[in-house]
Amino acid sequence: MGKNKFLVVIIGFITVTAFWMYWVSTNPSGTESALIRFLSIDELRAETNHGRVKLGGNVADESIQINQNDLLEATFILSQGEATLPVRYYGTRPDLFKDGAEVIVEGAMEGEVFQAEVLQTKCASRYEGDLRDVQTENIEEM
């Protein structure tokens, strides 16, 4: 049995997988897109026709407002240096979500407010660099 037949099967498999990866990347299934652009607030504002995007930034101090009739609903201001953006989120909030926390939101603009469907805080165990800043600061306070 020739070596070539194996090669054909292997290359065939790789080609199919490559196309499959491409297909998945370009075809969002339902609401869950596989690839999402990560923008800055300024970039988001500069665009008019944007779909689902991700944004990163900090929760502006004292900007978190929780609906007292439904604790699951929260609004806050996302800040990236000078740029700020109001965000609304409905759902369970991560424990590390608080003033100053570094967060990533995923969703789309609805009028002037960014409607977040996903709200993540950067996990301290995983993102060493970020934790370090906070802790250095805290040590100095002591």
């Binding site: 997988t17 998945v24 299934s29 869950e32 596989a34 690839l35 999402i36 652009r37 990560f38 923008l39």
Partner: peptide, 16 residues
């Protein structure tokens, strides 16, 4: 521009 790759990509590609 950073384009993030989410769990749906990995799941859809890797399930088959």
């Amino acid at each position: 521009t950073k384009i993030t790759v989410g769990a749906p990509f990995f799941n859809q590609v890797n399930i088959p």
